[in-house]
């Protein structure tokens, strides 16, 4: 690993300022992804700005909105009483990710910023447009069992590895971002982006911006929600496919539904058409199946991940079944 300059900041303003001054600088919080990437030579920042002392760890309900600071750890959010009670989907998703140790280190902001786990991205001797634009995509005709079936491009078929973000996408969260001019707020589903011709950009955060917090509005889904994660072993593995499902039911009639998928796209994949189809219908296996078929529209596989065309709809049905049976 190249040596680097290391500085600590205590305010978000100072953090944003120092980021603006140095293009080769990066923030470090939990470090669980960044240090890994630095060890592998995937990234080599010349300066690290340690933001752990910036006071952004709050988890609090303000009116109808839950505010989660960007530096709240994954474990702190997953274990928080309000989150467990009012947003169990988020708690479940967080606990489905990584390990207890990593969740103690990783932060909400860092989780959103984590890079794909595509093997070609991680191996600096392999081609990867995300790591080194123009070198090609190693996965498209290579080992792509874990890869995307939605929103892929010629340049990239990687998936976003987060579980937390899948739940946040389903829960209509907003992201509050700070830049030198002030703050801006964007919808969580617009935070991450599809690869297109510029897969090196994972999200719409600008170079001089910092995630301050995530806001989640209270909802009516808490009683009937479920995070399903299908993976190659029972724990401590990335998703083949995951589904965040939340239902508001009135005697088996679906009043409201939220669905998002992980392991299938370059960003958390919100299933708005399937949601629209299910809204107002009965929560039946038949309707779940029809919704899962709608959800698969536009999907495309690359050989080794062909199975996801079956696993994804099946997982939607299973997640809805589980969410429903929670009542």
């Amino acid at each position: 690993m190249i040596n680097f300059q290391y500085i600590r900041t205590t305010t978000s303003k100072a953090a944003v300022d120092s980021l603006g001054k140095d293009k080769t600088a990066k923030f470090i919080a939990g470090g669980t992804n960044l240090v890994d990437l630095m060890k592998r030579g995937v990234t080599a920042p010349e300066k690290l700005i340690d933001i752990n002392n910036v006071p952004l760890k709050q988890i609090e309900l303000k009116g109808n909105i839950l505010h989660i600071g960007a530096l709240a750890t994954n474990a702190a959010v997953a274990e928080h009483a309000v989150v467990k009670q009012r947003f169990p989907l988020l708690s479940q998703a967080l606990n489905a990710g990584a390990s207890a140790q990593l969740r103690n280190m990783a932060t909400v902001g860092g989780n959103m910023m984590q890079r794909t786990r595509c093997g070609y991205f991680y191996d600096i001797t392999m081609p990867c447009n995300k790591r080194e634009p123009g070198t090609g995509c190693g996965a498209k005709e290579g080992y792509n069992r874990m890869h995307a079936i939605f929103g892929t491009s010629e340049a990239c078929i990687a998936v976003h590895p987060s579980d937390m973000c899948i739940a946040l996408a389903a829960l209509d969260a907003q992201v509050v971002i700070m830049n030198p001019k002030g703050e801006r707020k964007i919808s969580f589903v617009d935070f991450h982006r599809l690869p297109g011709a510029t897969p090196e950009k994972d999200n719409n955060l600008q170079a001089n911006e910092m995630i301050i917090r995530v806001e989640i509005p209270l909802n009516t889904l808490a009683e009937n929600s479920y995070y399903l994660k299908v993976r190659d072993r029972a724990s401590y593995a990335f998703a083949l496919v995951s589904v965040a499902a939340g239902l508001e039911l009135k005697s088996n009639r679906i009043i409201k539904v939220r669905l998002a998928m992980g392991g299938v796209a370059h960003k958390p994949w919100r299933l708005t058409e399937a949601e629209a189809f299910l809204t107002g219908k009965d929560a039946t296996e038949v309707n779940f199946k029809l919704a899962s078929e709608i959800a698969l529209k536009g999907s495309k596989s690359f050989g080794q991940n062909n199975f996801k065309l079956k696993l994804a709809p099946n997982s939607i049905i299973e997640a809805l079944n589980q969410a429903k049976s929670k009542a």
Binding site: G30, G31, L48, M105
Partner: peptide
């Protein structure tokens, strides 16, 4: 593993279990 994928390096930092391989020492001031 040196990459946070096995847990052999688990220690407690201020009483909390973490993977010491992914923690830069200077972050533990």
């Amino acid at each position: 593993c040196d990459h946070g994928q096995c847990g052999a390096c688990t220690v407690h930092v201020d009483g909390v279990r973490v993977n010491s391989c992914l923690s830069l020492a200077v972050m533990n001031e």
